[in-house]
């Protein structure tokens, strides 16, 4: 439908949308994050939900304590190897459709603690991350921008065809294998289905 006609109709009080747009609009504006703080970034996540930054303006203020009720996991802080199996398990417990946001340098890559023997070098080794929010810690504004990026992403999703998201594809696994803690290190070091070590091309 031409946009002229649509805007003319909406001026008359008639709203016509595709089911896809309505569905995506509804989903993107009521993301329920898992109240799940790991480290420093969690405090900025809380600050974002408080009065000054007011995450509620974007429909994402309903922090749920249980993964069964949440559809957005904000990995806010350093993921240690000891914690990584629990993070994957929490992800598995979330119902589809679900999204993961890596908040802060540590969740993205290990950040300042990358050299640590007990620090996971980025949660995307185990989980499919939708949005990365850089910063150490990211300001609440940055978190809100990350949330809006996720909303734009949801708005673009097609409900039919081969491009449709995971939760609408039959046979697509929504649970990921949980890593185990070995005698020296976490095993396996990453899930090949979600992540591959990048090949580094170096000059010199």
């Amino acid at each position: 439908m031409e946009s002229d006609l649509r805007s003319e109709l909406s001026r008359q009080g008639v709203m016509i949308v595709s089911l896809e747009a309505l569905y995506n609009w509804g989903r993107s504006n009521s993301l329920w994050p898992l109240g799940f703080g790991l480290a420093c970034c969690a405090i900025e996540m809380m600050a974002a939900s408080m009065a000054r930054f007011d995450l509620a303006r974007f429909g994402a203020e309903v922090f749920r304590p249980s993964p069964r009720q949440a559809d957005l996991m904000i990995v806010a802080g350093t993921v240690t190897k000891k914690m990584a199996p629990q993070v994957v398990r929490l992800y598995n417990q979330m119902p589809e459709p679900k999204y993961v946001m890596a908040m802060g340098a540590c969740a993205i890559s290990g950040g300042p603690f990358k050299q640590g023997y007990n620090v996971l070098k980025g949660i995307d080794r185990y989980l499919p991350v939708d949005v990365h929010v850089p910063g150490c810690p990211p300001r609440p504004e940055a978190l809100i921008e990350g949330l809006m990026a996720l909303q734009r992403r949801i708005m673009r999703q097609r409900l039919t065809g081969p491009e449709r998201p995971r939760h609408l594809q039959a046979g697509e696994a929504s649970e990921l294998p949980v890593p185990t803690l070995g005698a020296r290190d976490i095993e396996p070091p990453y899930h090949a289905a979600v992540w591959r070590p990048p090949r580094v091309a170096r000059a010199s």
Partner: peptide, 14 residues
């Protein structure tokens, strides 16, 4: 304990 043990002391010694 230990779910946020991020090796501050080891990193500081390096």
């Amino acid at each position: 304990f230990g779910y946020l043990h991020r090796n501050h002391e080891k990193i500081a010694e390096q």
